[in-house]
Design a protein around this nucleic acid. Structure first.
Lengths: 341, 341
DNA sequence: CTGAAAGCGCTTACAG
DNA sequence: CTGAAAGCGCTTACAG
């Protein structure tokens, strides 16, 4: 039987046993557990001691039946991008001295996958959800927010009132990249974006790119190519762009991962970086240092984003109902890939 | 109040409402839910229809109070290594047509972090746990296995009876790398490992390396350096190795991440890869293709590992009690980094 | 095959 | 400040 398999060894200590050991009521123990008010110091001390002595650990699932599970869900599009690791570090730091724990679900970069994992998290009584790089449309996000406290990281919607958002200023980020490329002498600067109708960060980065081009008097050279994220598609796109008659002399890629792939295609075609073509990415992941001569990229302070998102979420769980929108300024890290001569 | 915040909108449909709607007992609905036997087709059909009509979703936390939560916990040392993404894909594929969902916890590469996240998962009533690259010692692993079904991926302990293991043959992997390096003409082949007393995969890869060296008559050139995983330490180590009087002409790094860093240090020192020094990694991550000329690496079929681990875990959850140990053969992917001339 | 009742381990009003 | 009782949404024996 499954039960014999699962119940092996140490049976769990329950709140009742702690209560008996301390000679108090179950309700009293519960109060100590939740740091609720209305408990005397002596009672609290007795209970704490019994909890330690018995090695008591509250069962989150049971707590969730009436109250909270002290669990927050983090939804990531995929796990491949090391940038998410920075966010995760921030989340864990924010949770350090709390009873909350973060558990991650992977949406496999699809809207249906994302909705499925969110539903699964709600079924599991998570207290709140942090959505990274949401691919949902606004209606779905609202539906989620109506059921659980929600914070979206990497989703611009500053007028929304039902959930919080945490972002770097993607528009400014795009603009910073173009400005530096222009300063470095590049003229035919193209951008590789993502084919997506819901990604607001993409849209913002594109606006920033356009702004940068226009302010440099390069409006007529604006060239945005939108592709899927699969390695194969990126390769095809990059090859086509770099073999075109009037090929770009610089490419701003919306994320490092894409930029690395473009670098490898360019190298294959015999183009030198940064002399023949300059390349920049976004996220400033560890791999930027590993790219042949270093990949210029935008740092969006992932750790800070994760920290803020977590703080906001816990505030929401504890009752705040008006929306907050946090934005951190981006920082361009210039490396060899956009520094010719 | 927190409760007003959380209970907003759509109240959840419960099993009781489904039962009323279908005109059957709560117990009957529960049976349909669990695909338990002893339900007539007509009753099952009625219940299914009511569930659909009402949009019923069982609350996993409540199910867990008596039975299972249909949740399995995946513990990863960190999220930075894209190899884990392959494992995750395999896990999700295995779970595709089941009621189970996988949730990930990050241990931040420390043994205390690992134990903390495992405890948190047990508190949250996970049905079973998959531990990737465990840093626990045997006693702790046994303690976990005594409480929950456990499968360890990347942990060699073929004689263990209390939990299952899933691995690639790391010994063979190490040997394959050395053999190819020898065939390519390298002689002073060094290995960069990890300072760890608990990592059995490290130990196995080292044995494979030694075997390979001895079988090639290079036993006297055996040179294993053990380092921490921090970028800084790796840089220092790599610099020291490559500037030594009789420096290695090839380095086998225990994981791609380290290899990429070594490549960047070598390049900085003016060494050409693969002519002056050959470099190989382990895991065959996507970044192998991005490294300057491609990084040779061992593919351990992460997706398959994840799939098998999940299958074994579910078998354990459903009652199997004798241990199984699955091993997949490694495959060397040769790229430019070890192909001079 | 079907259902009424007890119970999982907590929290939540409500009395005292 | 402290506690007895009800209840969260399910599953599990146990009758019928």
């Amino acid at each position: 039987m499954a039960s014999t398999e699962k119940d092996k060894g140490n049976r769990r200590v329950t709140i009742r046993e702690v209560a008996e050991d301390a000679g108090v009521s179950v309700a009293a123990v519960s109060k100590v557990l939740r740091d609720a008010y209305g408990v005397s110091d002596t009672l609290r001390a007795k209970v704490r001691q019994s909890m330690d002595a018995l090695g008591y650990r509250p069962l989150a699932a049971a707590r969730g039946m009436r109250g909270q599970t002290y669990t927050i869900g983090l939804v990531l599009p995929d796990i491949r991008n090391p940038f998410f690791s920075d966010i995760m570090t921030g989340v864990n730091n924010a949770l350090e001295r709390t009873q909350y724990r973060a558990l991650i679900g992977i949406s496999q970069s699809s809207a249906t996958g994302e909705m499925a994992i969110v539903e699964a998290m709600i079924d599991r009584q998570m207290d709140g959800i942090i959505l990274i790089g949401a691919t949902e449309d606004r209606a779905n996000l609202d539906a989620i927010a109506a059921r659980k406290p929600l914070v979206a990281v990497g989703h611009h919607e500053p007028d929304i009132t039902t959930f919080d958002t945490v972002n770097n200023n993607d528009q400014q980020g795009g603009q910073l990249v173009v400005r530096q490329m222009v300063a470095a002498g590049y003229k035919r600067i193209a951008m590789i974006g993502l084919k997506s109708t819901t990604s607001t960060i993409l849209a913002e980065r594109e606006i920033g790119y356009r702004r940068g081009m226009i302010e440099a008097g390069l409006g007529s050279a604006i060239n945005i190519v939108q592709e899927s994220q699969t390695l194969r598609d990126v390769q095809i796109t990059a090859r086509r762009m770099l073999q075109a008659p009037n090929r770009p002399d610089a490419i701003f890629c919306w994320t490092d991962f894409i930029a690395l792939e473009v670098i490898s295609v360019a190298t294959e075609l015999g183009l030198r970086i940064p002399e023949d073509v300059g390349i920049a990415g976004y996220d400033n992941t560890v791999y930027c240092d590993f790219a042949q001569n270093g990949l210029s990229s935008i740092d969006q302070s992932g750790e800070l984003l994760g920290l803020q998102a977590t703080r906001l979420l816990i505030e929401r769980i504890q009752g705040r109902s008006q929306a907050e929108h946090f934005v951190v300024p981006p920082r361009l890290v210039i490396r060899r890939s956009t520094s010719p001569g």
